[in-house]
């Protein structure tokens, strides 16, 4: 009678012991594994699935028996305990059924292993997670260049200021923009202009360090946040990026040049101050002949010379 009831349950039930001898294998398991219940007595799980190691299952059974309380596996962490290939008709994204498993001691030697199919749930969760990741990425990045967007950059800058205050670390900011970019758009059209922006972003990305953060500030203006970097180090990096851009072949739109403004964070000031300082230096570089790096130092902007 009890076995019949267990056969009506819509999840897998195995009654076993520490040696994994199968005492009961319900109908749900028989249907999903293709191993009939009457073939399981006298076998262990290892006999039925010789290519699978059940060491961790044994450990969980041991803990459940010692603790006299249930142990669990979660399908988001462990895909499955019993390998059950998904029915081809269901067209699941998972090859094997994802299982939440509860191992409950029945007495001093035996446990019941309850297996719940959570594949559909996890599939839905996976789709939602993927969509969320995409939305998060879209919210952070500039769709044209793939750089961080202005909002994200503001967040990164705020976080860097907090980090700087906490650890007394310095950092610097570079703001740069393309000289005479309006003429590119006017002469070659906006599609070509966009292509220049993309190429320039890629070129800049390749010439900064992994820890540096590149963002499109807007239009043809970009900025780079350089953690743990003093003013001089940031100016060297800016000049290197400047030279790489100036010598790059942008195809039909010809050579492009950029002007750079660099500022170092001063403890006790906020985001607006470092942005304004880098901006002042950029303005100076523009007015001083373009295609150059200017730094903001001692409350004034000056050309940077290597």
């Amino acid at each position: 009678m009890q076995t019949k009831i267990l056969d009506t349950i819509e999840n897998g039930i195995i009654i076993t012991n520490q040696n994994l001898d199968i005492i009961l294998w319900n109908r749900w398991l028989a249907i999903h594994t293709g191993i009939p219940s009457d073939k399981t007595p006298g076998n262990t799980l290892e006999d039925l699935f010789p290519r699978i190691s059940f060491d961790l299952l044994k450990q969980k059974i041991r803990i459940a028996l010692r603790m006299k309380s249930s142990t669990f596996t979660n399908a988001r962490v462990l895909k499955f305990v019993i390998p059950i290939e998904q029915n081809k008709i269901t067209k699941s994204i998972f090859k094997h059924m994802r299982q939440n498993v509860v191992i409950t001691p029945l007495n001093e030697k035996e446990v019941s292993i309850n297996i719940y199919d959570v594949s559909s749930l996890l599939e839905a969760q996976t789709i939602i997670d993927d969509q969320m990741k995409l939305l998060e990425k879209q919210a952070k990045t500039d769709s044209l260049t793939g750089c961080f967007n202005k909002n994200m950059f503001n967040e990164l800058l705020t976080a860097e200021i907090k980090r700087s205050i906490r650890h007394n670390h310095i950092f610097s900011l570079i703001i740069f923009d393309i000289d005479n970019f309006k003429s590119v758009n006017d002469t070659y059209g906006h599609l070509k202009g966009d292509s220049v922006l993309k190429k320039l972003a890629n070129l800049s990305r390749k010439n900064i360090r992994k820890s540096d953060m590149l963002a499109r500030w807007g239009g043809e203006e970009f900025c780079i946040l350089l953690p743990e970097t003093p003013l001089n180090g940031a100016a060297i990096l800016a000049d290197n990026v400047r030279q790489k851009i100036a010598s790059h072949d942008f195809g039909s739109t010809g050579l492009q040049q950029c002007s750079f403004g660099v500022a170092e964070y001063t403890l006790g000031t906020d985001e607006n101050i470092i942005i304004a300082n880098a901006d002042k230096a950029l303005y100076y570089a523009k007015n001083n002949g373009k295609n150059q790096v200017a730094i903001f130092k001692d409350e004034t902007s000056v050309s940077w010379q290597p």
């Binding site: 290519r51 699978i52 060491d55 961790l56 299952l57 603790m67 249930s70 669990f72 462990l78 305990v81």
Partner: peptide
């Protein structure tokens, strides 16, 4: 490391779950 383990996923997360279950169950128990 054993390639044939059915438990082939994130062992750290699994261990954290186990520790949390053991400590939580012992305490609440």
């Amino acid at each position: 490391f054993d390639e044939t383990q059915a438990f082939d996923d994130n062992e750290v997360e699994q261990s954290i779950l186990e520790i949390s279950n053991i400590i939580g169950s012992s305490c609440v128990g």
